[in-house]
Structures are given as C-alpha cells and as structure tokens.
Write a protein that binds this DNA or RNA. Structure first.
Length: 376
RNA sequence: GGGGGCGCGCCGGAGUGGGAGAGCCGGGCCAGACUGUAAAUCUGGUGCUUCUUGCUGAAUAGGUUCGAAUCCUAUCGCCCCCA
C-alpha cells in the first residue's frame, strides 16, 4: 500500500490523497460502505461500482468467521472471489462486536470469548487468531483486534482497556509480520487509537500507535453515543499526533455533517452503517437536507427522489413511489434508498476532495454543512 | 317464512356476561430513533379535551336497576341452521 497526499488544505487540516493497493486506487477522503457479512445490504457489487462509485468496502471478521466460516472462505479463495468485488476490501476485526455484543462476550488478557448471536455456540478470539482470520478473508486492510469502549466509560476502565488494546496491538503486529500475504497481493495492518473521550488517554494512545509506524492508522471508540463536539475534539487531538503522511481512518463515522467536520480535521477514511441502515428505515440524505420518505407529506409528491443524485434510480423514480415501497416493506424500496444514500455519501466525499484540490474547501464546507443538516 | 348466534373505538382477534376500559394482542396509520450492522429493526402515539386534566363512549332507540357493554323490548346489520 502506498499513500500520497496530493494537496493539503491551507486553512484546515483537510487533505486530498491517493491510496494505491494491489486491488486498485482509492482517492481520499473516502467513504467506505459497510458490507458486514460480505454484502452491502441491498446493493449489488456492480451497482456499488457503477452507480455508487464505491472504491473500497468493508467486511467483518466476527460475522464472516461464524458464517459462512473459514473453510468456505479459504476454498473460495478469499472474500473478493467469494462475493465478486475486485476492488479493495477492509475488514473490521470484531473489536466493534466487543462493544455491540457486550452482553454475549467475556474479555480476558488472552482474548475474547463470544457466545454466537446465531446459535449460542462459544468462540474464543485472540489477537493472533483475528490476524489469521483476516488473512484468510483476504482483506487488503486488516484491523488490529481492539476493545471499542462504550460511552460513557469510567476513566479507570478506559485506561485499562486502552493499555490492553496496546498490548493486543503488539501481538497483532508480531503475528501479522510473521505470516505471509495469503493470496499473492499485499495486506496491510492498521492499529487503532482508543482512550474513550479522555484527552490525556487519547494523547498517550495516539503516540503509542504512531510509534508502531504502520502504513496507516485508525481511530476507534468514537461514534458510540458521545456528543458530536466530543467526537470532533477527540479526533482533533489524535490527528495532531498521528503522522501527516499516512492515511487516517475514523472508524464508524458518520453523518454527512460528521464527515465534513472530520475531513477538515484531517481524516482520510470513513465507514458507517448509517447510509444503508437508515435507507432501509426510510431516511434519505441529500445535498438539500434530510428526507424521511415515510412522512405523509411525500404521499403524492411525484417529483424525482433526487434529480441530482449519482444514482440512476433516484433520478428516475418518484418520492411518492419510494414512499409506497418503503411503507409496503417492499425489498425494492430498501434497494433504491440504499443506492441513493450511498451515492450521496460518495458524492459528498468526492466533492470534498475536489474542493480541497481546488482550494475552495472551507467555503464549500460551510455551505454544505448547513444544507445537509436541514430537515425536508 | 321459522329458529339460533353475534354486533365497542381505523381494521381484525381474544376476552368479559350487573359494579366501565377509552383495557389486551395483532395489523394499519401518524411520528421519532438509528454512527467500525444481533437492526427490512426498535420506541411512542392513534375518540374529544384546557392533554400528569377532565369529558363522551360498547350497532340504534327505549326500558329494568342505586348501577347496564352485560338483563329486557323494538329496530337495523352480519353469520349459521331449517323450510
């Protein structure tokens, strides 16, 4: 993997860059659609490419390990071959499931035991094992095994958890560096900064992570319920420490406004389930504001869903029709809405990149920030 | 034509068979939530009102009773059986 910053914004910490991988290039800042179980819910791979213009998608270690399982993944020749996506893939390590499935797991220094949410069976994951699994999945970007702490989180717990995540990172790196790339293309390991919303912990964690000197770095433990201002101030501190010449990935973020603010703070990569989940629930993001397509006021609105969308279906189908589909729980509704939201998220980061390159980012961002938060 | 059964809130269902419930379970409808996906999920509201308050209310109209969704009469509607 190679990262080149094409341009630093003069007034903010935003940058436009290029990540080169064996599965193709990624222009940053970038939004990465989440495809937990090997599919971005409701969206075909060719639609991700041609309409959404996604450049990289996610998969999830915990979910893919449980189903279809590593035997199938290995026989398939990795996730790219399995799901037919030939561009880059990043897999989350299961660190988020340590948070989201907290009732079903037990953490020890050695690793985490999960009781499967599918059949209740027990599975023990170590940092080393998590590296092996992601190698087999064949992710271009492999995430370190961490603990994503909840919000709020007591200082004492946040500190102990962060220190354990750092020890796990050492184990991840050692094991990763002693195992070969699985399918003939380069795999890259990303460490994750933790420390909850405590500035001193975040500073320590960012310095510790930076010292590992990996090709890219991630920030975790945010977008777990903290106020947006906490997210921004924490991101700002961490970005001030993580090296400028390496990609910075803010995990699990976020809303269009979050993306704009965090791009300005120096984030290059984002992922979030919001555009796809909210699409299925009828919430649409547009450059003019947020639409709850289920609302009565769209019942007889026969204008296009979004005439400026990247997504062909958003230009061709009407609001009234999409409202009907979502109301009727028709699968096509979820598909159209997911395409729409992902198309918008990718358009938004693409525009951010163009304005950074053109030197017009701050002005554009100010205007867009106001627009995307409106309720239509 | 005769006999029997049943009628409540936007719809369906259960339940009750003199001491009310604007109650219960579905659904619809109206809103809200959702951030490295246990989520095509979850939460709230859905007679009127001055909305943490009162009021009206059990097909319709009467009646019995201290008190009726419940018992009686008539009418209307639906279902079943017999002719």
């Amino acid at each position: 993997m190679k990262f080149t910053v094409k341009k630093f914004d003069e007034q903010t910490s935003a940058r436009a860059g290029l990540i080169e991988t064996d599965h193709g290039n990624i222009e940053t800042p970038i939004f990465m659609p989440v495809g937990t179980v090997g599919t971005v819910k409701g969206v075909h791979q060719h639609e991700l490419k041609e309409e959404v213009q996604a450049q990289i998608i996610l998969g999830n270690t915990y979910h893919l390990y449980l189903r279809p399982g590593m035997e199938t993944m290995e026989k398939a020749g990795g996730l790219h071959r399995f799901n037919g996506w030939d561009k880059p893939i990043l897999t989350d390590s299961g660190g988020y499931q340590v948070y989201s499935l907290s009732a079903r797991r037990k953490i020890t220094e050695e690793g985490v035991t999960f009781r499967s949410h599918i059949d209740g069976s027990k599975h023990f994951f170590t940092p080393e094992g998590i590296m092996d699994i992601q190698r087999i999945i064949g992710a271009d970007f492999i995430m370190a095994f961490d603990e994503c702490t909840p919000y709020p989180c007591e200082y004492k717990y946040a500190k102990a958890s962060m220190e354990m995540t750092h020890r796990w990172l050492k184990r991840c790196c050692d094991h990763f560096d002693n195992t070969p790339d699985r399918y003939g293309y380069k795999q890259t390991l990303l460490p994750i900064v933790q420390g909850s919303t405590y500035k001193d912990l975040r500073k320590i964690s960012a310095e510790t992570i930076a010292a590992f000197d990996r090709p890219a770095n991630a920030i975790g433990g945010l977008s777990v319920g903290e106020p947006a201002e906490e997210m921004y101030s924490t991101t700002e501190i961490v970005c001030g420490i993580l090296p400028k010449d390496k990609p910075r990935y803010l995990m699990g973020v976020g809303t269009p406004a979050n993306l704009l603010e965090c791009i300005a703070l120096g984030i290059d990569m984002f992922d979030c389930v919001l555009p796809t989940r909210n699409a299925r629930h009828g919430l649409l993001y547009t450059a003019e504001g947020i639409i709850n397509i289920k609302n009565l006021k769209w019942k007889n609105d026969f204008s296009p869903i979004d005439e400026n969308s990247n997504s062909r279906s958003s230009r061709n189908y009407t609001k009234a029709y999409l409202r009907h589909l979502i109301h009727s729980k028709e699968l096509l509704g979820a598909q159209i809405a997911s395409l729409h939201n992902l198309g918008f998220f990718l358009w938004l980061v693409g525009q951010a990149r163009e304005h950074i390159l053109a030197g017009t980012f701050p002005v554009w961002k100010k205007d867009m920030l106001e627009r995307v938060q409106r309720r239509l």
